[in-house]
């Protein structure tokens, strides 16, 4: 993995690294990816035939039980405004 690629992934993950960190990280990621590449040698051609027991997904009833949490919800917010969460302005 080169620095450019690492930078692209960092952007996707909303992480920021300085140049040294990027160099370091690219190296480490290359190492990890090279190691996990061993999976390519696993023969998974017959994997579709493996039938695992599959349970159906659990569901809930269409009932409203939660309401009026606004105050509780914003209690932990770093910068609340009235009942809102806030972020830096998104439009010009």
């Amino acid at each position: 993995m080169d620095k450019k690629e690492t930078q692209h992934i960092a952007k996707l993950a909303r992480l920021r690294f300085d140049d040294d960190e990027l160099t370091n990280l690219s190296e480490q990621m290359t190492g990890i990816l090279k190691w996990v590449d061993m999976l390519q040698s696993a023969d998974t051609s017959a994997v579709a035939d493996i039938s695992g027991e599959e349970k159906p997904l659990g569901t809930r009833k269409d009932e409203v039980k939660t309401a009026g949490l606004s105050r509780e919800l914003i209690k932990n917010a770093p910068e609340p405004y009235e009942h809102f969460f806030t972020v830096p302005r998104m439009v010009e």
Partner: peptide, 17 residues
């Protein structure tokens, strides 16, 4: 979630964690 799907009202009021 079990919060109401109805729209309108106080902001962040029909919101579960």
């Amino acid at each position: 979630s079990d919060a109401s799907a109805a729209s309108g009202g106080t902001p962040n009021d029909t919101v579960s964690f």
